[in-house]
Amino acid sequence: MSLGNTMKGQKKFVPPAIQITSMMDMFTIIVFFLLFSYSDKPDEFDVSKDIELPTSTSSINYDHALELYLSQGSIKLEENVIGTIDGENVKDLDPDHIAKSPLAVAFTAKKQSLEALPEGLEVAEANALSDVEVLDPSDPHILLFCDRDVPFRVINQVIKAAGSAGFTNFQLAVMEQ
C-alpha cells in the first residue's frame, strides 16, 4: 500500500488561526511605555526600602561616584555598613575628634584604595581592564543617598567624617519632580 493511499482519506491539516491582534495591541503599549522610560543610564543603584529620597527640581545628572547610603538607622559606603545611627547621633563618633572615629577611618581606607591605581595606569585604562568602573582619585566625590527625614545633625557628622578623609565634594541624590 502506498503512502499516498493512506493519506487520501484524511482531511488536509488546517493550522489553527491564533488571534494575535490583542497580543499585538498589548506589545505596542509595552514598547511605547519602555521607549519613554529608556535611559542611557539604566538603574544601577540598589537603594534600600528604608531610604526615601526627597523630590527636587534639579535637572543635573549624577556622575559615577562613591555611593554613600544614609538611612534612619545605618550608614553604608557602597556595599559595606560603616556605621549605625542611634537616635540623632552617629554611634561611636566623638564630635570633637571626628577624624579619629571609625567612620572617618572607613572613609580614609576607601580613599586610599581608590588612589591605589597600578603605577603608570590612567583611570581610562584601568576602566578598560576592569569590570567595575574605577573612580578618578583626582576628583573624589560622594553620591549621597539620604532618607528625607534624616536630621541635619546626622548628615553633618557624616559629611565631616568624609571631609576629614578628603571627600569634600558631594552630589545629593534626589528624585526628579
Binding site: P42, S56, V174
Partner: peptide
C-alpha cells in the same frame, strides 16, 4: 527582541543630583 532590550535599558528611578561641597 525589542522588549527585553528596552527593559534592560529602562530607568524607573528618575534620579537627579544636586552638587554641593563642604
Amino acid at each position: 527582541v525589542l522588549i527585553p532590550f528596552l527593559l534592560i535599558s529602562s530607568s524607573f528611578l528618575n534620579l537627579k543630583a544636586i552638587n554641593t561641597s563642604i
